[in-house]
Computed example of a mutant assay.
Amino acid sequence: MLSRDELHDLFEGLAGLPYGGEVVDQRTHALQAAAHAVAAGADDELVLAAAFHDVGRARPVAERHRGLPHEQAGAAFARDHLTERSAWAIEQHVAAKRYLVAVDPAYHDTLSPVSVRTLRAQGGPMSPEETAAFEAHAWSSDAVALRRWDDTAKDPEGPVLPMEDLIAAYERVMR
């Protein structure tokens, strides 16, 4: 289990870290995604998944998991420090974007220019076979919810989850 100080340090390490051309930094993005999860009534595991979904971009995590895409590095970190459900949602949040583009044509128009660009690099819309396999997983709706919170967590004026609330959720899940 991570200590309160380790959690603070991890998220403080995201402050000022660019978020691929978006108008918010990695810390704001993470805490906004978590705030959206709370507003949607998500349970603590999904709030944590929202907060940690891009942790694979944090310097210590990326260095430990060199060469892995951020969602896989983040999932590896989450398997060590969160729950399997949180880790799976983190690992699948990129796949969920590909899924949503495949099943909801209007979804593409909601993506930021950066997300449209990365979608191409991530493989574009899922094939029908990939879509069926994704839908068959028991936690696919968790990954889709996380993806939607991720997409809306790019507002410099948007709400952010206070660190104390994030730490409290972490302690409830990990006790």
Results as ranks from 00 to 15, higher is better:
72 Q>N: 06
44 D>A: 10
89 A>V: 13
113 P>A: 07
70 H>V: 12
95 A>W: 14
71 E>R: 11
52 F>V: 15
41 G>I: 07
103 V>K: 07
87 A>W: 12
37 A>Y: 04
7 L>H: 10
78 A>D: 12
86 S>I: 12
69 P>Y: 06
139 W>A: 05
124 G>K: 13
95 A>G: 15
122 Q>P: 00
149 W>M: 08
94 V>R: 14
153 A>Y: 00
68 L>D: 09
172 R>N: 09
27 R>N: 00
35 A>E: 02
13 G>M: 09
175 R>F: 04
85 R>F: 11
149 W>K: 01
147 R>N: 08
126 M>N: 01
142 D>R: 03
113 P>D: 14
5 D>K: 13
2 L>D: 10
159 P>S: 10
25 D>G: 02
134 F>D: 02
49 A>R: 08
114 V>K: 01
127 S>A: 08
65 H>M: 09
76 A>Q: 13
62 A>T: 01
147 R>I: 00
36 H>S: 08
65 H>D: 06
7 L>D: 08
50 A>M: 03
82 L>G: 08
69 P>F: 14
64 R>P: 03
68 L>Q: 09
27 R>P: 00
117 R>V: 06
97 K>F: 00
146 L>V: 04
121 A>V: 04
54 D>P: 02
31 L>S: 03
157 E>T: 05
82 L>A: 03
16 G>N: 14
26 Q>M: 11
85 R>V: 12
149 W>Y: 12
77 F>W: 15
103 V>Q: 11
48 L>P: 10
141 S>Q: 08
136 A>R: 14
76 A>P: 02
173 V>R: 03
161 L>G: 00
62 A>E: 15
46 L>M: 06
